[in-house]
Write a protein that binds this DNA or RNA. Sequence first.
DNA 1: GTACATGCAAAGTCTTTGCCGCCGG
DNA 2: CCGGCGGCAAAGACTTTGCATGTAC
Lengths: 161, 161
Amino acid sequence: MTAKNGPNDPVEATGKKNVEKNSRYRMTRQREMILEEIRNAKAHPSADEVYEMVRKRLPRISLGTVYRNLEILSELGEIQKLELGGDIKRFDWNPKKHYHIRCLNCGRVDNAPVAPLKQIEDELYGATVYTIFGHRLVFEGLCPRCTREAEASGKDLSNPQ
Amino acid sequence: MTAKNGPNDPVEATGKKNVEKNSRYRMTRQREMILEEIRNAKAHPSADEVYEMVRKRLPRISLGTVYRNLEILSELGEIQKLELGGDIKRFDWNPKKHYHIRCLNCGRVDNAPVAPLKQIEDELYGATVYTIFGHRLVFEGLCPRCTREAEASGKDLSNPQ
DNA sequence: GTACATGCAAAGTCTTTGCCGCCGG
DNA sequence: CCGGCGGCAAAGACTTTGCATGTAC
């Protein structure tokens, strides 16, 4: 067992629709449905949630196909793969960089309406030996539902320090 | 399969050594060695890396014990559990909040010498339905070693968009 | 002495992959 | 036509857990 962490997929965000036109990829029914369902989703679904959504329209689709297509669609820049901590990856119909907020209790993810930190990476110039590509800002807290539950149960899930 | 994301452990950073004194936990030899190895580590080791380090001194320790103790030690506020994306958790001898930088190629993690964003969470007041506990800022790039390799191989791992 | 802890192995969760027949362009 | 695709199931990577025994206090 060695530390393993494949590179995140460098995403080429062309902004164009139908990137597939210029690629070696085909637009299959499965791929199309997956993309459609993600774009219709209000939330940031996990692979399994996408699977469940698409399954209602294509009952015979397999989870493997969903994973493969989510990977491909994020390579194509049609969607964005999110690795925000927690155990699962989530997917965002919006391939543009933006910040997120994650519920520490249920894992729900929403967008964080915070302006991009444009200068923040400058602070690292000369202060790090890394080549910087970007940054990710994730807020952590409780979603409204879990906030209500926490209040009801009297449990304190707050995070001192 | 349901979206599952246990809460991050609210870390009580007392700064005191020997928090164990006041807790129900015992200081076993395994626990002690694990803590010691993490504190001596220059990097931010994964559970498996901690296992390998400790194994040199306690050859019969099991990986399960390492996982259990890393969990407990971070509950105690002696160390910090990091979930920075990628597939694995890493551990930081420093339980205080600070920012990190992660190599997209090999998964290595180092501290990011960037001043804490004190006001950033204020931007979310009234703009989100979440109860905010904190935030995490992770820079992404290539560590020096992987930078060198990328340059040597001519591969472009940069991240457009 | 009594909980809590360990070692070991099995199980769990999420994700990836090999194989082979199928189908989009 | 043919090379990418999908379905299926098995394998993989990382982490957690059940159980019987051991040990810190």
